Simulated scan of single mutants.
Amino acid sequence: MVNLPERVEVLGAPVDPWTMEQTVSATDALIKQGCFAHLIGVNADKLLQMRDDPEMDSCVRRCEIVNADGASMVMASKKLGIDLPGRVAGIDLMWELCGLAEREGHKVYLLGAKADVVAKTAEVLVERYPGMTIAGYRDGYFSDVDFDDVVAEVEQKKPDIVFVGITSPKKERLIERFRELGAKGAFVGVGGSFDVVSGNIPRAPMWMRRVNLEWLFRMMQEPKRLAKRYLVGNIRFYLLLRKELKRSKANV
């Protein structure tokens, strides 16, 4: 982890202004050093969670790697004159880290989603990365009181990379529990990526990703769950950005 740009703040959220390649390289270095690393992606929704929940704010600031996982963060950074090389989407990072695991011999564990979904995700990854070792997997249907048992179950497999496909804020609390109990390796929050990798839910077509409309595609797939998050959240995010732009101009 040398010669990497220093962490910046976008609307009060910390972000490592790294490319995908830099993120993968830094993760590899942390694994080989025997460190614990919590990798998190910040988008508009995560930024708003940080503002509403001091525990989430503290958690994100503790993370060893914080990527801009959202076109909104990249757009805001450009308007504010903050240099971000681009978006590092969680699912794309998952693919890249699996490639790293195959090349470097890192063992992978999959934690989250329904039992059949995570099992199918393991099948897909083994087919795509035949040289990668999947140390194990389990579903994400357990309560907070079971965290220590889950940590013990995962740690028994001694993985180097753990992909955690659970919703927030449970995902972040669980990963931080791994930290508290002395785990080593890279713990990567990937949200609903297992559903996409397994084929349970389609990903937005490339043209929508290119024009920053992946959020709209996701909302169309699960409108009851995501409509409020995206519609209300995007308005809140825009208002925060407008306020910050006005403040910046007033200080010039």
Rank of each mutant, 00 (worst) to 15 (best):
R7C: 07
A13E: 08
V8Y: 00
D28V: 06
A13F: 07
L4I: 09
M20D: 10
D53S: 14
P14D: 00
E6G: 03
V15R: 05
M50H: 12
D16V: 04
V66I: 14
R61G: 09
I40P: 02
A29V: 11
V2E: 15
M56C: 13
M56K: 09
L48N: 12
E9M: 01
D57F: 08
C35N: 12
L47F: 07
E6A: 11
Q22W: 03
T23K: 01
D16N: 13
E6H: 05
E55M: 07
L11R: 06
V15F: 13
D57Q: 09
A68M: 08
G12S: 08
V66W: 04
I31K: 04
C59T: 12
A37S: 15
D45V: 03
E21D: 14
A68V: 02
F36V: 04
E9V: 00
A29R: 14
M20Q: 12
W18Q: 05
L4E: 09
M56I: 14
I65L: 14
G41T: 15
D69F: 03
L48H: 07
V2I: 13
P5S: 01
L48G: 10
A44W: 07
A44R: 13
W18M: 10
D69M: 09
W18N: 07
I65T: 05
D53R: 14
V42L: 02
R51L: 13
H38V: 01
L39W: 01
R51T: 08
M56A: 14
G34L: 11
N3H: 10
V66S: 04
P54Y: 05
D57E: 13
Q33I: 06
A13Y: 07
T23H: 02
M20C: 06
V60E: 04
G41W: 02
D52A: 15
I40F: 13
A29S: 15
D16I: 03
P17H: 00
Q33F: 00
D57T: 07
D16L: 01
I40M: 05
I65V: 15
R7S: 08
P14S: 00
Q22K: 05
P5Y: 00
P17G: 02
H38L: 06
E55G: 10
M50D: 13
M56F: 15
N3E: 14
L48Y: 05
D45R: 05
C35V: 00
M50L: 12
C35G: 08
Q49R: 13
D69K: 04
K32W: 06
Q22L: 05
P17S: 00
G41M: 06
P5L: 00
T19N: 04
R51E: 15
V10A: 08
R61S: 09
F36E: 08
E9H: 12
D57V: 01
D28K: 15
D45W: 09
A68W: 03
A13H: 09
K32V: 04
